[in-house]
């Protein structure tokens, strides 16, 4: 029994790895219904008129790419299909490459032109002060876009002087930027905002959903897969939900196994004796 309680952790890693590989090779399907917080982001974008301005803040880097890049791609598919003017930016210097790649690759599928249909403002340091600067004048916050173009000359930014002129903002975050956007942007300049985040910070974001400081939330790969389903562009996140479900079942089994063996071996009684 003691041997079962001290299994080499590498056996568990191997089991999880095999479960992921097997569930990617074996063909089966599971439904991915959209949850209300994800549905609300979709509905908001769906309700925007053609030519409305959507600002996406790509606040993540390659270490969170697997969760947030599928979200960004699905959002961009939906936005370009709807004919929205997309404005991209990032608070994370390591995120510029991913944001640029996502915007250009999806825009080319819908024959969208840079400067006219979408712009990428790039990275600026500052966090809260950058947001407040954008709230006063977006052109002084970003004098030039990522490619060095004067932001006052970009047709896609026509009619956008500050954050107040943005029709909808979505922050895709792997850190604290959602809170920063809410505190220094949304509450101060009164625009509607949604958010996408990694699963790890997902539970911390639900209070903002409840207080209606954000209108919708996509948390982790599941949130991305739900949005892909809604936007009818099933891709990596949707594919990832099969191994996700299988590995979750495996983790539950491991937890149950560990607890059953712990109780059978009398570990619970000896622990209680020690605590006395």
């Amino acid at each position: 029994m003691q041997r079962l309680l001290n299994i080499d952790r590498r056996i568990i890693f191997a089991a999880v790895g095999l479960a992921v590989i097997a569930s990617l090779i074996i063909k089966f399907s599971l439904p991915v219904p959209a949850s209300p917080p994800v549905q609300r982001i979709y509905d908001k974008i769906e309700s925007l008129p053609v030519g409305a301005h959507l600002l996406i803040s790509f606040d993540y880097d390659p270490s969170s790419k697997e969760e947030l890049q599928p979200m960004a791609l699905a959002l961009l598919h939906h936005s370009f299909r709807k004919g929205l003017k997309v404005i991209g930016m990032t608070h994370n210097p390591s995120g510029t490459g991913l944001a640029e790649q996502a915007m250009n690759s999806v825009a080319s599928l819908y024959q969208k032109k840079y400067k006219e249909d979408y712009v990428f403002l790039g990275y600026k340091p500052g966090g809260a002060s950058l947001i407040m600067n954008m709230g006063e004048d977006i052109h002084t916050a970003f004098l030039k876009d990522f490619y060095g173009n004067d932001t006052t000359m970009l047709p896609a930014l026509e009619g956008v002087e500050s954050l107040k002129d943005i029709d909808y903002l979505i922050d895709l975050a792997a850190g604290v930027t959602i809170e920063t956007w809410i505190a220094f942007g949304k509450e101060k300049y009164q625009f509607e905002m949604g958010a996408g985040c990694t699963a790890v910070i997902g539970p911390d974001m639900y209070p903002y959903l409840d207080s209606r400081q954000i209108n919708g939330l996509m948390a982790g790969l599941k949130g991305a897969a739900e949005y892909e389903t809604l936007a009818e562009c099933k891709a990596q996140a949707f594919k990832g939900m099969l191994p996700q479900s299988v590995t979750h079942c495996l983790v539950v089994l491991f937890v149950l196994f560990g607890n059953v063996v712990f109780f059978i071996s009398g570990g619970f009684r000896s622990k209680r004796r020690q605590s006395r």
Binding site: V16, L24, E67, V200, G202, A219, Q244, V251
Partner: peptide
């Protein structure tokens, strides 16, 4: 949620 996040990273790399 943390388990989901870590698994997502693994799944992305395995894909």
């Amino acid at each position: 949620y943390t388990v989901m996040g870590r698994m997502s990273l693994l799944i992305g790399r395995v894909i």
